[in-house]
Amino acid sequence: MSMQIATSLDEVLAALAAGARPIAGGTDLVVGHRQGKAPLPESLVAIDRVPELAEIADGDPLRIGATVTHARLMTDQVVVDRLTAIADAAALVGSPSTRNVGTLGGNVMNGSPAMDTGAPLVVLGAEAELASADGIRTVGLDDLWTGPGRTSATAGELCTALVIPARPASSGSAYVRLEYRRAMEIAVVGAAASVTLDGDAVASVRVALTAVAPTIIEIDGLEGLTGRAIDDDLLAAVAEAASEQASPISDLRASDRYRRHTIGVMARRAVDAAARRAAGESISVPVNRALGIGAAA
């Protein structure tokens, strides 16, 4: 096999056009190979030394480069202040060593329904920027993820950034997940929420769910909550909607019955934390630790 170390986006795109596959942190690709899931591609192009892929740009929209690592996401001030759910999620990924090399673009393009950064990106309205030798396009995440481990990107396309609309005032977001231990864990279920308040009332609320369907899914029908106060009734409605719309499986980590229940718990807690952040309360990253989600404080 061969591996090229690229230092510019043009080099990367030329290599992809020639049949190479991209590698950044390698935390999915190399581990998957060692576990016998898939052999390493014959030709790889390393994208971790391309400067423009590693930038976080404030503005409208906000732009997070694909090779920004989880370690940076969980501490970057722009992300922590305005895209807090992404920081919550990044802080829970793997272990310190995974977070130091694993990237946002890698997490998104791996297409796992258990990815931690996926649900936060959905509730924040992110789109993926895909570049190829033929040009650049942006694609909504619901169009990007087509099934477990599958995306609509072509082999010649590289995810270069996640693009996120600027956040309205009085907005907050959060990501919580059910975990059985505090490191080296994969989401049993998880939920992200974004809440914008108008005074004490909900101006908008979005909730997306991790590991309860073939892809990350967004809960439908929350528009009806607009104008209501964040109270137990509203949170119960969110939990019920999440449990209803989930289509979880039974596997080694949990039964479908338990997942269907706990996804409601996670959704309720995510909305609660997001709303409190929207109201100006400082809840440190990640919410799982700050609020003792899963008894974890």
Binding site: L178, T262, V265, G292, A295, A296, A297
Partner: peptide
């Protein structure tokens, strides 16, 4: 021990 009653997760 602390038990999260809604999920059963114990710490």
């Amino acid at each position: 021990v602390r038990v999260d009653r809604d999920t059963g997760v114990t710490r």
